[in-house]
Design a protein around this nucleic acid. Structure first.
Lengths: 111, 111
DNA sequence: GGATTGCTCAAGCATTCGCTTTAGTATCTG
DNA sequence: CAGATACTAAAGCGAATGCTTGAGCAATCC
């Protein structure tokens, strides 16, 4: 059994995106796949730290990776953004629905 | 001078959304404003804890609040979701752009 | 075969997070 | 005025985060 932790995938996606370094890596990867060392070149921190960030991204599903020889190549997985995007859109929709209902009430109250 | 911390607003919005309790509060507030105690009723944790979550949400700009008498009322601020939504959409766009470019290359290579 | 490269693993450490408990301070209610 | 109510502020604590350093190991280069 793969210990997949009980957390909502949304938790992991939003948490992954809350770090500027990780967002940077996703941005970089949206322009095409890259290796860990290539990704590390953009940052001042250790390769070790970069790899740890990449693990967080992979755990969230935002990127996948496969190893060929000694280099591990990372690819962005835009599908994983879907739930987050949908959650945000749902909030906006719900809010507008509420606004409209309020307007109706006001219109009835003071016609 | 208001000590506003140097973090990117995106950091704070995504971080705020990474907690299910806080997302729950935003969902609740999308249906209309509510007080701290009303919001606390939905959760098993202390009012104190709920208030701390609400502070995080307010610091991110996702909600605002104003106090009348002894009750503080919270309102959702859907505008604050804009940057996050845009960031996500930009990623998807960038990725598709890259895909298209790749297809072009393949088409040229093997016509 | 020996050095270099690209990553992996584990330990350690300071900081931040998510909570609780405790102790207030206004505000409203009877 | 005596509660009860609605929050506020602060201290404390265990767990999670974001790093670093150091040590290793397989793939590649000369």
């Amino acid at each position: 059994m793969l210990e997949q932790s009980t957390a909502d995938p949304l938790d992991r996606v939003f948490a992954a995106l809350s770090d500027p370094a990780r967002r940077g890596m996703v941005e970089r990867l949206s322009a095409g796949p890259a290796s860990a060392t290539q990704l590390a070149a953009d940052h001042t921190m250790t390769l070790s730290a970069v790899v740890q960030h990449l693990k967080v991204l992979e755990a969230s599903g935002l990127v996948t990776s496969h190893k060929t020889g000694r280099v591990r190549t990372f690819t962005v997985e835009p599908e994983a953004l879907g739930p987050a995007q949908r959650w945000i859109e749902d909030r906006k929709r719900a809010w507008h629905r509420d606004l409209d209902r309020l307007e109706d009430l006001l219109r009835q109250q003071a016609p």
